[in-house]
């Protein structure tokens, strides 16, 4: 099957209501959904220019985030799919290993009509981005790994996030733990009209999240929306990384195959991912550059959006310079 054929067969992209009143404006972004091999995937898009795919963390951050606005401003077309099982996306229950997940991510790229993109991944998404760059290097123009899990480093384990209480987890996750719900609020925005297959409404209905009125109206905050979002996010993360715990034992030996210019970013205050993991990625990927951000923990895209956008722009320029 040719690439073009697969794109047309897999993707039926439809835009739904905008997250803001300025529907369709590249500066505000919009929600859409696509069908990927029978799975409904919700996508947030913002900006136009160089395609950039953002793969979220275990907490499922998407929507109108500051980092997407900054990236759009810097000349990127941001495409932020909600991975299967997160947010309003359908789950894939047939995954048995990370290779299955990577294949799904590749099909999402097909569905988005993206031949080649800058791929930015946060934590879990960083792991998947690195896998994508190993298995489908032709799809990755530049790679930005933000606090990427995915490796096992002896004596330096990733903090066990499953079952961790908020008061233990959040100070490790964020330099400003109180911001947690604000960072995830954009992901809880629910398109006020949706495209009819009904499957995407399930989580919203379970949680009692209302379906709003006319296009552009904000949906009233639902106290159960965030717990429900996190419940699904942790289930989806467990599906991928319960055991082996958030890593692929084979990945370290394959990272030498990554050809794209690569940036590894980690927050100095990260209490989830030990520094040794960022170092291991940097050492294993040819030519990779490593940056540590001050006043930042495990989610740099949320905690230091301007900085991250600037770093991504820089690594993308180096990709342009490298390829004729």
């Amino acid at each position: 099957m040719t690439q073009a054929a697969s794109v047309s067969s897999v993707a039926s992209v439809s835009s739904v209501a905008s997250a803001s009143s300025a529907a369709g404006s590249p500066h505000h972004g919009e929600w859409g959904s696509l069908d990927v091999d029978g799975i409904r995937i919700r996508v947030f898009r913002q900006g136009s220019g160089v395609p950039l795919v953002y793969l979220h963390s275990p907490f499922g951050e998407v929507g109108a985030l500051a980092v997407f606005a900054d990236l759009a401003e810097a000349g990127f077309q941001v495409l932020a799919p909600e991975l299967p099982g997160f947010g309003q996306s359908d789950p894939v229950t047939s995954w048995r290993g990370v290779a299955d997940v990577v294949f799904t991510v590749r099909r999402i790229l097909d569905g988005l009509g993206v031949e080649r993109a800058v791929v930015v991944g946060s934590s879990l998404g960083g792991w998947l981005a690195a896998e994508l760059a190993v298995w489908f290097p032709e799809r990755v123009r530049a790679l930005a790994l933000l606090a990427p899990v995915g490796l096992r480093v002896a004596d330096d384990p990733v903090f066990p996030i499953f079952g961790a209480e908020d008061d233990v987890l959040l100070p490790r996750l964020l330099a400003r733990p109180a911001e947690f719900s604000a960072y995830l609020a954009p992901a809880l925005a629910w398109p006020v009209t949706h495209d009819g297959d009904g499957s995407g409404g399930e989580a919203g209905e379970d949680g009692g999240a209302g379906e709003g009125g006319g296009a552009g109206e904000a949906v009233a905050p639902d106290p159960l929306a965030l717990p429900l979002h996190l419940f699904r996010a942790m289930e989806a993360t467990a599906r991928i990384g319960w055991n082996p715990y958030l890593h692929d034992p084979a990945l370290a030996g394959r990272l030498t195959l990554v050809g794209a210019p690569t940036l590894v970013v980690r927050g100095e205050l990260d209490g989830i991912l030990p520094a040794a993991h960022a170092a291991a990625y940097t050492a294993a990927i040819p030519g990779a550059r490593r940056v540590e951000l001050a006043d930042c923990a495990h989610l740099p895209a949320l905690e230091q959006p301007a900085e991250v956008a600037q770093l991504v722009a820089t690594i993308t320029r180096s990709a342009k310079a490298a390829s004729p």
Binding site: G163, D206, L228, F231, M234, E235, A238, W242
Partner: peptide, 14 residues
């Protein structure tokens, strides 16, 4: 009472 992620459906958890 420990319930790992994915062990229960939303309905059961509620």
């Amino acid at each position: 009472q420990i319930a790992p992620p994915g062990y229960q459906s939303v309905a059961s958890a509620v």
